[in-house]
Amino acid sequence: MGHRATHDAQQQGTGPLDPTTRRLLNDYQHDLPLSPTPFADIAAQIGVDEATVLEGLQGLQESGAISRVGPVLQPRRVGASTLAAVAVPPERLEEVAELVNGYTEVNHNYEREHRFNLWFVATAPDEEKLAAVLADIERRTGLQVLDLPMIEDYHIDLGFPLQW
């Protein structure tokens, strides 16, 4: 219940977020200080104390507004990863989505408006294991999986500027 209330407050966008929260969300999506005390550094920059920053970030993480304070990895540099698409008959979509969710290798899984209506990202330690996961999904669902690995990245990721 509490979770839901926070969630809704944030979705209204403009009003409910105090200036500190806005700055935490917007200003530190990249370049988290690489000093021994990054959160104290942030606190000094925005003029609050360290506890306020830590509690603020914990609250945002608990409410789901942020998924983490951490790294965004370049795909295919640490392990293998791919974007995969499946054209699932509508009546089977939930069943297949659940099956795909069951793989720890899958970290994003969305329904999209298209004949290819299920899109997921899978990661594995190497290409061979990744291919085995996709093959396993094909075998269990009886559906063809389109394997669409990144070839080149054109986006410089500085996070996402939020408009209040």
Binding site: Q10, P36, I66
Partner: peptide, 27 residues
């Protein structure tokens, strides 16, 4: 840890280090 993270960022293995927002939850 700090040195290695700096190198991983400079080498592009880590694209960015910071707050990762969930767009849907933010409206």
């Amino acid at each position: 840890v700090i040195e290695r993270l700096r190198r991983l960022l400079d080498g592009g293995v880590i694209k960015r280090l910071g707050v990762v927002v969930r767009h849907h939850e933010l409206g």
